[in-house]
């Protein structure tokens, strides 16, 4: 077992454990901790798959940004006084069956990289820039427009909420 295999295995374990915690945790604190573990695991997967740029961006945007916002929202919405707010769920076998079936189908259908092959080459940020500013320029610009739209949408939502 090489160092790369170990890195991939630990990243996969972190992803699975974080996802399980996010889906099943009862307290809000544990939910956010698990979501953080999941997002860190995703960043490690990106690194193991040879994309340090994407890994750094994942940490920057999700752990430093989105997760902090989730925690803020939980602090605002949390009902308990001083206690960590509960995040309730209504477990039922039907939902579990749907999720299990989806897991089996996805695990069979999705394309796999054969295990045991050499670790992938690192994708340099310059190659990504070539794609984003070359053939992918439309998608790149659209992403910018989407961010602007999201910014305005958040402003409108928060302002209209404050009036009442």
């Amino acid at each position: 077992m090489s160092a790369h295999d170990l890195a991939v295995a630990s990243a996969a374990a972190l992803v699975l454990a974080g996802a399980a915690g996010t889906a099943l945790a009862r307290s809000a604190t544990r939910l956010v901790l698990s979501l953080g573990a999941f997002l860190l695991g995703v960043a490690l997967c990106f690194l193991a798959l040879g994309s340090p740029l994407l890994a750094a961006a994942q940490v920057f945007v999700y752990i430093g940004g989105v997760l902090v916002l989730v925690l803020f929202a939980l602090m605002v919405v949390g009902r308990g006084d001083g206690e960590s707010p509960r995040v309730e769920s209504r477990h039922d076998p039907g939902a579990a069956l749907v999720a299990l079936g989806l897991f089996v189908v996805l695990a069979i259908v999705t394309p796999k990289r054969p295990s045991g092959i050499a670790p992938p080459e690192m994708v340099s940020p310059l190659a990504v820039a070539d794609v984003l500013l070359g053939s992918g320029i439309v998608a790149f610009e659209l992403a910018g427009v989407l961010l602007l739209a999201a910014l305005l949408a958040v402003l409108v939502i928060v302002k209209s909420g404050g009036e009442r």
């Binding site: 750094a56 961006a57 940490v59 920057f60 752990i63 430093g64 997760l67 902090v68 925690l71």
Partner: peptide, 11 residues
């Protein structure tokens, strides 16, 4: 990396 990783400490 230098800009992104310290942002974990916010958490």
């Amino acid at each position: 990396f230098f800009l992104a990783v310290p942002s974990i400490s916010v958490l």
